[in-house]
């Protein structure tokens, strides 16, 4: 009996591994392979017309953070890279915060509707998400450019005389990225809230907690895994965002994604591009590590 069931268990385990094979193959060739190439390239010398020379060099990695002054030949911090890096992290973080501020009440609203209405609201949240990113970004551009809808309206109403410069600023990037990634914040928070037992809210009120206290001490701790997941889901793609800063930043507000693209394109420095890509990957890994730790702790208490 025990032998039989043990044998069956072993067989089951083997079949399950077999089921993983297609996914594993795809991952091996489409993810691990290119990653390995990027890693190797980051230690090579740039070729004159793009590509790489097969000559080992640490130049690309030093160039990520430092550069040699053209005139004095002294090493100094690569201000341009650091500015872009800092802007990427700052804007991604602020986008995550904004998405949380807009997403949390939205998710709460949807989760407290009757079940049938919830699906409709979720559909409404998802529809823009299914629309092409470029089209949505250009739509925002149309809204906020100097001769765009918002400025035209404000001028027509006499609120302002001169159009407000919104496009090609950090504001336009924030607006664009918050809009684009908001569903990624709402979805996981909503998933947490849907499982949330709202009789706990009543219990809180019953035990003399005010609305704010119920939110802080009961709702928030229990949906925190959703909030953390949402923040990561927004933060990570923002770090590598390419289209939004390209269109709404107009080449002035570069982010990491644009910088990397520059190295592989116009600047023909593939090794530096590769090194920057890996730097981005490391930042993402740190963010994910933070997520695993935060959720791991909460995971035990949350059903």
């Amino acid at each position: 009996m025990t032998d039989l069931s043990a044998a069956r268990n072993r067989r089951d385990r083997n079949t399950r591994w077999l089921l993983l094979t297609p996914a594993m193959l795809v991952l091996l060739f489409a993810a691990s392979g290119p990653l390995l190439i990027v890693l190797v390239y980051s230690f090579l010398t740039p070729g004159d017309y793009g590509g790489v020379e097969w000559q080992f060099s640490l130049q690309a990695w030093t160039n990520v953070l430092a550069e040699r002054d053209i005139f004095t030949d002294e090493w100094q911090l690569a201000d341009a890279h650091l500015t872009v890096l800092w802007r990427s992290i700052k804007l991604s973080f602020m986008t995550a915060v904004l998405a949380f501020i807009f997403g949390f009440p939205t998710a709460y609203f949807i989760a407290t509707r009757p079940p049938r209405q919830r699906d409709i609201y979720m559909l409404l949240i998802m529809i823009p998400f299914w629309t092409n990113l470029l089209i949505r970004t250009f739509a925002i551009m149309e809204l906020i450019r100097n001769q765009g809808t918002v400025n035209t309206l404000l001028i027509a109403m006499g609120v302002i005389d001169e159009p407000i410069q919104m496009l090609f600023t950090e504001f336009s990037l924030l607006l664009g990225m918050t809009y684009v990634y908001l569903p990624l914040m709402i979805l996981p928070i909503y998933a947490s809230m849907e499982r949330f037992d709202f009789s706990l809210v009543e219990a809180g009120y019953d035990l003399y907690a005010t609305r704010l206290q119920v939110l802080r001490k009961i709702i928030f701790p229990l949906v925190k895994p959703g909030v953390v997941a949402g923040s990561i889901l927004v933060f990570v793609p923002c770090l590598g965002a390419y289209v939004t800063p390209r269109v709404l930043g107009g080449g002035k507000q570069l982010m990491l994604g644009n910088l990397i693209e520059l190295q592989f394109g116009q600047l023909r420095n593939w090794p530096l591009g590769a090194a920057l890509s890996l730097t981005l990957l490391v930042i993402v890994m740190i963010a994910l590590l933070f997520y695993v730790r935060a959720v791991g702790r909460e995971g035990e208490t949350n059903v």
Partner: peptide
Amino acid sequence: YARPVNTVFQSYALFPHMTVAQNIAFGLEM
């Protein structure tokens, strides 16, 4: 939350992220 009335819920509605003692302390702390 202003009524001097407390409820024992059918589903108990205990706070899952708190210990037994923290659950009991909740009303007093509030």
